[in-house]
Design a protein around this nucleic acid. Structure first.
Lengths: 188, 188
DNA sequence: AGTCTAACCGGATGGCTCATCCGGACCGCT
DNA sequence: AGCGGTCCGGATGAGCCATCCGGTTAGACT
């Protein structure tokens, strides 16, 4: 993992591109490399060399969020209470995906542009599987739930909260949906 | 609601376009009007006159499924058991959305190209609200669940099942997810 | 400091998809 | 058969994406 030094001007442009992309993501605008070049005041070629595709740029924007999520996941593994640990991890995952618009497309994608993204997603899946296994062994969650269901379900919740409802109450909505999923819509 | 007679050749082309679109939807190919014209062996203008946009065509393809769903919804209203009625309606909704790829984009969309689509979606929302209200009054479902949450949650489940997992077990997966949502992931 | 090389910059450019528009053909009715 | 109105369909232009290459500049080495 030797990071190539990168020339000073190139580094400056890289930062600038990511910053512009971050702003666009925050305001919900889809990333178009040609447009980003214009906004950043540089040539199209510059943008395309740093980020061969819009996905690569999006993943770069999303990286810090994914790193934070992974870090929190590692901490959750230290939690004694299996049910609490899993719920906390899932809550954090949902909140992050809803608060940061760059995350859900990346987590939902089947293929990644950047190797680092694949690593991070792999880590998150591992943590989720570990937490779920513990919770299942402790008989806190239903037995028919496998680790393969975790990602789809989380993406589904995030999708539900993102696509509908105004952005203002979005995080609150997502939390409610997760609670509903965890506890069940039906009272038993 | 007077249907314009439509000339014979025009009607033939209309049918053909919808048939081709249906086939494309079934195999998961996104609808491109230009491409459809080629496959149907007719000019682009013909397709665009019948369907000004790809959404209009998709909604036409989805219409029968929506009609069936609405019809079933009306029946569900006759069910005595509020919990059973709601669960049945939701199950049917999910199964349809997963089995017919034309439905989820239409139900998830905020704006409709065809007035009839808006009507049908409105009907479905009304039925869902009615069923939910009854179930809530009967204390079978959690009180913090409003009718506005129904569509997002259903879309989320369908999304989760559609985006991930192979198409073969898709319906089964969707059913599992719905059950999980209804009963809750956590055992209480 | 001077020079050299490799990397970087950036706009001109071609391919591609989308949607429109209008001249010509065709249908249905008298 | 003739005619009005509708329909057909390809040619066409606009917009977006991604590439490529001549000119420039940063950094290493002497």
């Amino acid at each position: 993992m030797t990071t190539v030094p990168l020339r000073k001007d190139a580094a400056r442009n890289w930062e600038r591109i990511v910053a512009v992309a971050r702003a666009l993501v925050d305001e919900g605008t889809p990333l178009q490399l040609n447009d980003i070049a214009r906004r950043a005041g540089m040539g199209v070629g510059t943008v395309y060399r740093h980020f061969p595709t819009a996905e690569a740029l999006l993943e770069t924007v999303a990286a810090p969020g994914l790193e934070a999520l992974a870090a929190h996941g590692e901490q959750a593994l230290a939690d004694e209470d299996p049910g609490h640990a899993l719920a906390g991890f899932l809550t954090r995952t949902i909140e992050a995906q809803v608060a940061d618009a760059s995350l859900s497309p990346v987590t939902a994608a089947h293929t990644d542009a950047l190797p680092r993204t694949t690593e991070l997603k792999q880590t998150l899946r591992s943590v989720g599987r570990e937490l779920l296994d513990r919770a299942r062994d402790a008989k806190v969650v239903r037995a028919d739930l496998t680790s393969a269901d975790l990602v789809p379900l989380m993406c589904g919740i995030a999708y539900a909260a993102n696509v509908h409802g105004d952005p203002a109450t979005r995080v609150e909505t997502a939390r409610r949906y997760l609670t509903a999923l965890l506890e069940g819509l039906y009272l038993s």
